[in-house]
């Protein structure tokens, strides 16, 4: 019996795990680099496909980040000693 081929799914998962740690800016930079590489026209076909897949993941990550950016305003509540005790919702008058 032959060995099972490496699972592409697990590969993609480690990739996306690594992606999740990226800052928005880094993700955007990588996406731009990928587009530039593709534009150069010098990428081998196989690589262009995986590059595109990565670019797509980066694009989705960026969009998620942008969509997730929502206003959440908190105010730090200070203890008697002036140290932060926690936060409470803040509503600017």
């Amino acid at each position: 019996m032959t060995l099972p081929p490496p699972e592409p799914k697990s590969l993609a998962m480690t990739d996306s795990a690594a992606l999740a740690d990226l800052s928005f800016e880094d993700a955007l930079k990588q996406l731009e680099t990928i587009v530039r590489q593709l534009e150069s026209g010098e990428v081998p076909l196989d690589e262009s496909i995986s590059l595109y897949a990565k670019g797509d993941a980066l694009k989705r990550l960026c969009e998620e980040r942008l969509n997730a950016a929502k206003a959440r305003i908190e105010k730090i509540s200070l203890g008697a000693d002036g140290a932060p005790r926690g936060t409470e919702p803040f509503n600017a008058g």
């Binding site: 996406l31 990928i34 534009e39 076909l45 694009k59 969009e63």
Partner: peptide, 27 residues
């Protein structure tokens, strides 16, 4: 500006897709 970024990201995504398709077509 989030809207600008979202636009930029969408554009990059579309370009990447176009390019990838062109690669395949050319191949």
């Amino acid at each position: 500006v989030r809207a600008d970024l979202a636009h930029h990201v969408r554009e990059l995504g579309a370009r990447a897709e176009r390019l990838a398709r062109r690669y395949r077509e050319r191949a």
